[in-house]
């Protein structure tokens, strides 16, 4: 009689397509590249240990990202980088965060020609991500790197979906503020950028 795949084979088959996303998430969420291996080792060991609890056919991607999120959170806390913070509230704060608080003309210049800044801002982006609060950072990375929907992110982080929406909005705004600041410091963004569509914004 033919033998079915072993637990290890099944686990590896699930893990295989997610390696890039898992590694990228850790690289962005941790403070030192050298820490990525430590965290991934713990994640893989713990997830494999608990793999019997995973219900086949359900969302493995979300299942293992919960392990990654918790491991990164613990790792950063253990090393005194992230404080335990209150979850950001949903509501008006999201609206506030959405408006591009940075210098409006410079932000428009960034929108007109983002490549000029993005081509050379690797370190600024990495720094901006690390400066986010833990939930904001996790939300941003789960959405961008993990490609999760809001509902999935809420399940992974075990927070309300409204918190995911406000956190993501705030994190995006902060990242953009940092890009504008970087562009200004490096002389890549000019204040006298031509007026964009926002100038004549009216209700249709």
């Amino acid at each position: 009689m033919a033998k079915g795949p072993t637990k290890a084979e099944t686990f590896l088959r699930h893990l295989e397509p997610l390696r890039g996303a898992l590694e990228a998430y850790c690289r962005r969420a941790l403070y030192d590249r050298g820490e990525v291996q430590d965290v991934l080792q713990s994640v893989v060991a713990n997830a494999y240990r608990d793999f019997d609890l995973y219900a086949q056919g359900t969302n493995f991607r979300a299942w293992i990202f919960r392990y990654v999120h918790l491991e990164v959170l613990n790792y950063n806390r253990r090393h005194g980088r992230d404080r335990h913070e209150e979850l950001p509230a949903a509501g008006p704060a999201a609206e506030e965060a959405r408006s591009p608080a940075p210098d409006e003309p410079l932000f428009r210049a960034l929108l007109d020609d983002p490549d000029a800044v993005l081509d050379q801002c690797d370190e600024a982006v990495a720094e901006a991500v690390r400066e986010l609060d833990p939930v904001g950072r996790a939300t941003l990375l789960l959405q961008a790197v993990g490609e999760f929907k809001y509902r999935e992110i809420a399940d992974i982080l075990q927070v309300p979906i409204g918190t995911v929406m406000s956190s993501l909005s705030r994190s995006r705004a902060r990242l953009r503020q940092r890009l504008v600041r970087y562009g200004e410091e490096q002389g890549l963004l000019k204040r006298e950028a031509p007026p964009g569509p926002g100038d004549q914004r009216g209700d249709s």
Binding site: C121, V145, L175, L179
Partner: peptide, 9 residues
């Protein structure tokens, strides 16, 4: 573009 940068590598 930002998403691509975050995923890069």
């Amino acid at each position: 573009l930002l998403t691509e940068k975050l995923k890069a590598g």
